[in-house]
Design a protein around this nucleic acid. Structure first.
Length: 452
RNA sequence: UCCCCAGUAGCUCAGUCGGCAGAGCAAGUGGCUGUUAACCACUUUGUCCGCGGUUCAAAUCCGUGCUGGGGAGCCA
């Protein structure tokens, strides 16, 4: 007999003669004549109630059917006489697939997020973490669907990279030799690292295929100890040929609206859990993300707003500074209370590949700031003019020879193009109201922490 | 890396002025009930984070280290 997922059973409106379910026991309650077993199989948030009458096949397992045990149940799905569920399964055969020992750490009550991080291998069995992982999966699919519908091609950019100055932060070295061996004797004959961004590769592909995106793991060896940084995270990086900064922001905004709508549609039960127990303002946030136009504000105008703000800042504001968290939060959370694209940043605080504006002072960069999270997206129109790019690289002391292939793209049919990077875990934090990045990724990697 | 806070039973936490180590939940046993974070009774559980110091006496005070959390910087 074929196993049916609990999600499919709970979607039914009619009884079912013969079913087989398999899952894990959330709780067992006994009466003299029969027992209630709450079974969850991960297919959805809800569990299904199983009734096991004394004397039916498998009832002898009941004393060992404890929280966390794995079971298989055959029986009939019937209308439930009790309150709290429309249907339940009356068991005709109970099988104990795997027992759960006394030391099972998940109890039938709420645990702290900090404790659950110490048992990351078991926390997906809780309502909250199961819900996060289902939303993560759905969001990932929605991203792919969005770009598929928009005519983008999915590209796979390298994880191992030889370039060490993409300007995105400290890198993890990878090597097959020990300490004193020179890099020239190493596997690749030079220093190699884990990627911090697929952007430069993506640009090459965009300049052939038009619109592309890469979506994969990214690594930063920064000693960042915050709730918004991980050493290994997933980044989405679209890159579009014949696209300027405005088009770049258009795609970013459309993408987020699409994903929010999709999650609200197909993860309603899981989202409701977060709206009820994690962040009471979540539904309001999500509908605003979906329905409201995002603010688009130049860096210069943002500085003006901050200078006029009555709120006292710890760090003074002036044109040319890199905005501090408190400034970004003020804009997104207090002044506008919605997502804000900031664009045209001073060249001094942005990397070499961003396109120089006509004023010679700012570059065509854009960041999307969102309430609670801060920077969700960082992107730019890329410098497509060979001479301007060379100027910037010289000013920043970047060896052009190392970028010979990148420079080639500006020599052979160079076109205006744009792209951005979106931190996938930060998007999930936005969608769920979860406040720590360690809780939206199954096995988080952060400084000093590599268990599991 | 910097600043602040915390670390006591499996979990969540209380522990007053330095004077015998506590509660709720979980777990175990028994009971009861179409139950549903079930309920009732009883029972078990400690390197008070580690190391050093002050003191007649330290969970409590001091120093130091480790771990965790919040914030900052860096960024996505």
């Amino acid at each position: 007999m074929k196993r049916t997922k609990i999600k499919a059973l709970l979607a039914r409106t009619a009884p079912l003669e013969n079913v087989l379910i398999k899952g894990w026991v959330r709780t067992r309650r006994d009466t003299k004549e029969f027992s209630f077993i709450e079974v969850n199989d991960g297919s959805c948030l809800a569990s299904i109630q199983v009734i096991v009458d004394a004397g039916t096949p498998g009832a002898e397992f009941l004393p060992r059917i404890s929280t966390g045990a794995a079971v298989a149940v055959t029986g009939e799905m019937v209308p439930s006489p009790g309150k709290g569920q429309a249907f339940e399964i009356r068991s005709r055969g109970l099988e104990l697939v795997g027992t759960s020992q006394e030391a099972y750490p998940l109890q039938k009550k709420r645990h702290s997020d900090e404790f659950l991080r110490t048992i990351a291998h078991l926390r997906p069995r809780t309502n909250k973490y199961g819900a996060i992982m289902r939303i993560r999966s759905k969001t990932s699919h929605l991203i792919h669907r969005f770009f598929e519908e928009e005519g983008f091609f999915l590209i796979h950019t390298p994880i191992i990279t030889g370039s060490d100055c993409e300007g995105a932060g400290e890198m993890f070295r990878i090597t097959t030799v020990s300490g004193s061996t020179p890099a020239s004797d190493d596997f690749f004959g030079q220093e190699t690292n884990l990627t911090v961004s697929g952007q430069l590769s993506a640009e090459m592909m965009a300049l052939a295929l038009g619109d592309v995106y890469t979506f994969g793991p990214t690594f930063r060896a920064e000693n960042s100890n915050t709730s918004r940084h991980a050493a290994e995270f997933w980044m989405l990086e679209p890159e579009m040929a014949f696209c300027d900064l405005t088009g770049n922001m258009d795609i970013a905004e459309a993408l987020i609206k699409y994903v929010v709508q999709g999650v609200l549609e197909s993860c309603a039960e899981d989202i409701a859990l977060f709206a009820n127990f994690v962040d009471k303002t979540l539904m309001k946030t999500l509908t605003s993300l979906r329905d409201d136009a995002y603010i688009r504000l130049s860096y210069a105008d943002a500085v003006e707003i901050l200078l006029k703000a009555k709120k006292p800042f710890d760090y003074p504001v002036s044109f040319g500074i890199d905005l501090q968290s408190e400034h970004e939060r003020y804009l997104a959370e207090e002044h506008f209370k919605k997502p804000v694209f900031l664009y045209n940043y001073p060249k001094g605080i942005k990397p070499f590949y961003m396109r120089m504006n006509d004023d010679g002072e700012t570059v065509a960069a854009m960041d999307l700031l969102v309430p609670r999270i801060g920077e969700l997206i960082g992107g730019s129109q890329r410098e497509e003019r060979e001479d301007k790019l060379q100027e910037r690289m010289q000013a920043l002391n970047l060896p052009e020879a190392d970028y010979w292939w990148y420079m080639d793209s500006r020599r052979f049919g160079s076109v205006p193009h744009s792209g951005f990077g979106l931190g996938f875990e930060r998007l999930l934090m936005l969608l769920t109201g979860i406040s720590n990045i360690r809780d939206v990724i199954a096995f988080p990697r952060t400084p000093g922490s590599i268990d599991f």
